[in-house]
Write a protein that binds this DNA or RNA. Structure first.
Ligand SMILES: [Mn+2]
Ligand SMILES: [Mn+2]
Ligand SMILES: [Zn+2]
Ligand SMILES: [Zn+2]
Lengths: 157, 157
DNA sequence: CAATAAATGAAAATGGTTTTCATTATTAAA
DNA sequence: TTTAATAATGAAAACCATTTTCATTTATTG
């Protein structure tokens, strides 16, 4: 781990960028700031709208490219709710959310984070992961648990 | 063509169709046959190609519509691997697969079914589902567990 | 068979995402 | 600081899975 570079707030991701030979640019900084400021599961278009408010010269293409790159780096988690557009959220970094999973409403597509009961999860996932990777000769690097159903508002309709 | 309700091979889905007032048509029969014959996680285009071989007059639109309808009815499970096209598989019916989850290769997008260790899963999921639905006032109807990683072939490259 | 409405297929539209390419900006070297 | 190399950018176009439209066909019921 390279140290002595990231001083000051918000420098951690710049270190990560330097480590892989990627440049620190204004559009990238804006995108990451936006991800920091929201607690939501945002689409590329969501990010683009906010980025455009901050700096109208930032294009949608760059938003996509930055989100892809951050996903590749493991800084951002990309996932799908079933409405045709990918969602993104900061995860597993100093300023982002910790390991968690989702409740997804099939009605309004709302996403609820949950990170309770992680000890039970650790036990179950750990054991299962071990057995599966052995049995199927498969290197497991990540997992996702999603519960589907209906939120309070959508339960009536 | 017309069979008595609940009698004969392949009639189970026709009953389900009748029950919701949907008609039993040739294209729908072809699509369901194709889903039966494969053990794969197929895309709409995959199904279309096979359907077209059997009956060239069947259109892609109808394949989409049938897959949607079957998903709606819970006969088919639709899900996303991250390559931009939805996948479908028969599930939870007399001729389909039983409850299971997936190992997804981030390299080649291969999907491995697993249904082992269901007793451990039942315990963990059941407990967690109970606690979550109470805490978030959320009616849970389904869940998905996915492990991501790399299959044997993709581990080298 | 006739009446009726559901289902179908071809073509066009949609919409999220990716590609292309000329221009700009970052970075390390001089 | 200037410069050279090249990574990054944005606008527009392309892409492509999925959906919509609509005229036609077909399953179903009596
Ligand atoms: Mn989340
Ligand atoms: Mn499966
Ligand atoms: Zn809802
Ligand atoms: Zn693979």
């Amino acid at each position: 781990m390279v140290r002595g570079r990231g001083h000051g707030r918000g420098a951690w991701w710049q270190d990560r960028f330097h480590d892989i030979g990627a440049r620190v640019t204004a559009p990238r900084e804006v995108v990451i700031d936006i991800l920091h400021e929201t607690n939501d599961h945002v689409s590329a278009a969501d990010v683009y709208v906010k980025a455009h408010e901050i700096n109208p010269s930032i294009g949608l293409t760059t938003v996509y490219r930055t989100l892809d790159m951050l996903t590749q780096m493991g800084i951002v988690q990309k996932f799908d709710v079933g409405d045709g557009k990918a969602r993104y959220e900061l995860v597993n970094n100093p300023d982002g959310k910790k390991h968690h999973h989702h409740l997804i409403c099939l009605g309004c597509k709302a996403i609820i984070d949950y990170s309770e009961f992680l000890d039970d999860e650790l036990e179950y996932i750990g054991k299962t992961q071990n057995r599966l990777s052995k049995k199927y000769n498969f290197t497991i690097t990540d997992h996702a648990i999603s519960f589907y159903g209906f939120c309070e508002r959508c339960r009536s309709g």
